[in-house]
Design a protein around this nucleic acid. Structure first.
Lengths: 346, 346
DNA sequence: TTGAAAGCGCTAACAC
DNA sequence: GTGTTAGCGCTTTCAA
């Protein structure tokens, strides 16, 4: 058996002071005699003391833990549930979100609890988890439209912050990128390099992000005298991007510029173009969106509209933290600028 | 302000019983009168009671939480630390590990806490986290050789289970796949389809997995009268696989079969072969390892050696859980069979 | 089968 | 500046 872990009491005895004093030193509360501080610290070292999180949480009423919830649509089968997790993590986007979140939390000695909410039962588990005080709040990364989770959390009064604006509007904080302006950058770049037959591979149009990117692209083209452009819809995956590109090519073989609403679809578009015997960017220029790892993995490397995902994710965590601490009481949104990253594909 | 959360006491009062009885009902302890059970359950519903995790943990001495640690090498810069997380999650392998772990934990209402341990400071944070009782044990997914974390956890007496055999041997449980036998399957398949000039792209040879795959491949080739085969080393990434393939081709342009030690490198090899004007599998057959999402994303889809990653990860979680519960006291290893999945590349 | 009561390890209000 | 003390909400003997 492992010997019993030392408690505050043990340290106090060792240092010849009271529990309260040790607690003050551990928590860095001022008004403690430097000499006593030293004695306490020595005792902490010699006993190998580590504060017990449960005991602390019980009195502070804080778990000092936040949940990172990947929300989406899925059916109830067990296979599907497991597949959902794998699929979500496979998205290069998600890695950067985690990275940004961890970048914010780690200096605070906090770590995210990873949860998946793709069914009603799973959503209820998330709510239960938070209501038990297992976590102080939730960061929600939604991969579907009409996600009921944000509104559910809001109605339960549970702190949360979202990555991207929720579609059924809900009174919760979120971060987002300026999709329309990002798409505008893409449109202007294609026009600027002289493309005449321009088309776009849109994302799933039930998602606000996909809608906004398409709208921004269309508006800009219209403002430049091109009121109508061919559109094919994909599902933000490589395969769907390739398929959409093929559909566009079959109807408009003379396309010389394409804006895909994310990098994965841009990658698929590049593959489809290559297989059709076209060169990128010489015959057709391609621009993606996100600047995810797929942009660099793609041949040729993608010119793309960059979202500062890590920074956005860190801000999302900060918004949540401020809400938990009661510093912030009203839902807040922070929208980041997009930026064009020019590589080889356009 | 949110109203105070209801406690056991509140439920007890509402149901007209004692705290102890409510606790028994909540925890499903037998010996409670069915009528009283009903009354208690009604009271739980009407009060909206949710058990407080901290209070429970304090007395049970269980966090009912486990850490999922991605361990690896990195420098101390903040940029690098964040990059590490993004890189780890970008590996298609990791998503399946998470998926398997979550598949085991979720039915138990547990969720993994995601931690990264790429520096000494980060490793100490992991140890501190466990010693505080924030988590009951750690699942370690190591991306480097000579990882000091397993031995560190073992020496602190902290429960842990690893994905893959640790290189500096440590007295900890782990799951693994039969790398040598898997490589043997690949070798035999290439030989069976008539390849005469066979080479291999090995993984980073400081990793036991890479060593074992190479050894298994070499041994099998030797047993079939080919004591020497060209080897180029990669780093388990697409780019390094392409580079390794190019090195092999420059010295042995007549290669007609390649075994890459993982799918990402196999994908890179396919790209390099295509760029050199060779067709896969007609001119050169390619076999990967893992059966990760990269195997399907690759053109052509990869014939590969499948590791049952999800099952392995679930077993790893089970080994840890049993250790935490004290059911299992000795370090245990479980090694899974590999399986050849035949697609188009060989 | 149920209740009373002790106590898990900690923080924080209050007294000194 | 430091100590005393009262809980935080729960599980778990022990008695009844």
């Amino acid at each position: 058996m492992t010997r019993q872990a030392p408690t505050l009491e043990d340290v106090a005895r060792e240092a010849g002071v009271s529990r309260a004093t040790v607690s003050r030193v551990v928590n860095g509360v001022r008004n403690v005699d430097p000499a006593i501080q030293d004695a306490v610290r020595t005792a902490i070292r010699s006993t190998g003391y580590a504060p017990n999180r449960a005991a602390r949480s019980l009195v502070t009423r804080r778990a000092e833990t936040i949940a990172l919830v990947v929300s989406g649509a899925g059916d109830d089968s067990e296979t599907e549930q497991n597949a959902f997790a794998a699929r979500a993590l496979a998205d290069p986007f998600f890695g950067r979100v985690v990275s940004g979140v961890v970048g914010f939390l780690r200096p605070r000695s906090m770590y995210p609890v990873l949860m998946f909410a793709e069914t009603e039962a799973a959503r209820q588990q998330v709510v239960a988890y938070l209501r038990q005080g297992s976590a102080d709040g939730a960061l929600v990364f939604s991969t579907r439209a009409e996600d009921p989770l944000p509104a559910l959390l809001a109605s339960e009064g549970l702190p949360c912050a979202l990555f991207a604006r929720p579609l059924p509007q809900a009174p919760v904080s979120f971060v987002d990128v300026a999709h329309r302006e990002g798409a505008q950058l893409a449109a202007e770049h294609l026009l600027g390099r002289g493309c005449r037959r321009i088309a776009t591979v849109a994302g799933p149009l039930e998602l606000p992000a996909a809608q906004d990117r398409l709208a921004g692209f269309r508006d800009t083209m219209a403002r430049h005298g091109r009121p109508w452009i061919p559109v094919a819809e994909g599902r933000f995956t490589v395969d769907s991007g390739a398929a959409a590109m093929n559909r566009l090519l079959s109807e408009h073989p003379d396309i010389d510029g394409v804006f895909a609403a994310n990098d994965l679809m841009a990658q698929g578009a590049c593959e489809a173009l290559r297989e059709s015997g076209r060169r990128v960017p010489d015959d057709v220029a391609v621009i993606g969106f996100d600047d995810s790892s797929a942009a660099l993995a793609c041949r040729p490397p993608l010119t793309t509209v960059r979202q500062p995902v890590q920074e956005m994710a860190a801000t999302m965590a900060r918004l949540l933290q401020e809400q938990i601490e009661g510093i912030r009481t009203e839902p807040t949104s922070v929208v980041f600028d997009a930026e064009l990253v020019i590589r080889d594909s356009a």
